[in-house]
């Protein structure tokens, strides 16, 4: 009896382990395509871009002229790199400061049960999100033109300004224009994020507050805002990363001009890698600049990531 049962058990065990082995095998089969893609299209390009950073290389053939850290030193010493870096930073800050609060206000209005045609309004705000960035840049270039530009014509006609503004012919105004267009393009998606956040708020809390005699403003400050902080951090995070990597819009809208006034780092790198006015591309240099900028982005992401963690955990407690 004893013998039989152990045999049975071991058979059963064996059966379980074959099931288990088959399961593990299936897991690997499921992971396989993603792993191949990961190694080829994520890991390899990262490693290669680090490698290229140490070469003087024009992009044809395989790099052979090793120059150590020379590219990195040159990037760090290049005042145009820092100029572009500063512009990326201004653009990001400008976008976050404008978009995050205003999109919340619009979301609150859209979320109000008193608003009629909410779907229509919501769609209108969301429209620019679905447009191709490159096309937005091209359209806006014409809207912001000095002579014959639509914006100036309208502002002059309604008397907001007396003299036309040279939006794209002046570095400060060009940055303002770039930020405005950036806001316009990405605004709708932030509104949706906020709406998602607002819909998670417990209704009974407001009832209780109203019973206690809290007004709309007080409800907003003491209930809505604290509950939305996790969303605030996530939205800020997305907006920052998005703005830090802006390329299409700048390329098609201002192309970094006038006189580097809106030159951002992704465009700076692109110029060295793909545009060859006066000589051949400098792929090694472009790679080095990309790595340095990547580290800068990483530091900012980590700071924001820590914030996400911190507020994410307060949410669950």
């Amino acid at each position: 009896m004893e013998v039989v049962s152990t045999a049975k058990r071991s058979a059963k065990k064996k059966h379980i382990s074959t099931i288990r082995r088959r399961e593990v095998m299936w897991c690997y089969i499921f992971l396989f395509p993603q792993l191949v893609i990961y190694l080829a299209f994520t890991l390899w390009p990262i490693i290669a871009s680090y490698y290229f950073g140490f070469f003087n290389w024009n992009g044809t053939g395989w790099p052979t002229h090793f120059i150590g850290f020379q590219n990195f030193v040159e990037v760090l010493q290049d005042s145009y790199f820092w100029g572009a870096f500063k512009n990326s930073f201004i653009y990001t800050i400008g976008l976050v400061v404008i978009v995050v609060p205003t999109s919340l206000i619009v979301a609150i209005i859209l979320n109000s049960p008193k608003l009629k045609f909410a779907t229509f309004f919501r769609s209108m705000f969301f429209l620019p999100v679905v447009l191709t960035m490159a096309i937005v840049g091209i359209i806006m270039k014409n809207i912001f033109a000095f002579e014959g530009g639509f914006l100036n014509e309208v502002l002059l006609n309604i008397g907001v300004i007396q003299e036309p503004i040279n939006w794209l012919g002046n570095t400060a105004f060009a940055m303002v224009a770039l930020i405005l267009v950036g806001v316009w393009k990405g605004f709708g998606i932030k509104v949706i994020y906020w709406l998602a956040g607002l819909q998670t708020l417990p209704k009974d809390l407001y009832e209780a507050a109203r019973v206690d005699g809290a007004g709309i403003v007080q409800q907003f400050i003491y209930i809505t805002l604290p509950l939305l902080i996790p969303f605030l951090v996530v939205i800020t995070f997305f907006q920052t990363v998005w703005a830090f990597n802006v390329f299409d819009l700048v390329k098609t809208f201002t192309n970094g001009g006038p006189y580097f006034g809106t030159d951002v780092v992704p465009l700076y790198i692109y110029r060295y890698a793909f545009e060859i006015e006066g000589g051949f591309p400098r792929m090694g240099f472009a790679s080095a600049a990309g790595i340095i900028y990547g580290f800068a982005t990483m530091i900012i992401s980590i700071i924001l990531g820590i914030l996400v963690r911190k507020f994410g955990s307060t949410k669950t407690t």
Partner: peptide
């Protein structure tokens, strides 16, 4: 400075 150049010129 005399304002005779088309102001779109810089871009």
């Amino acid at each position: 400075d005399e304002g005779v150049i088309h102001p779109n010129s810089p871009t």
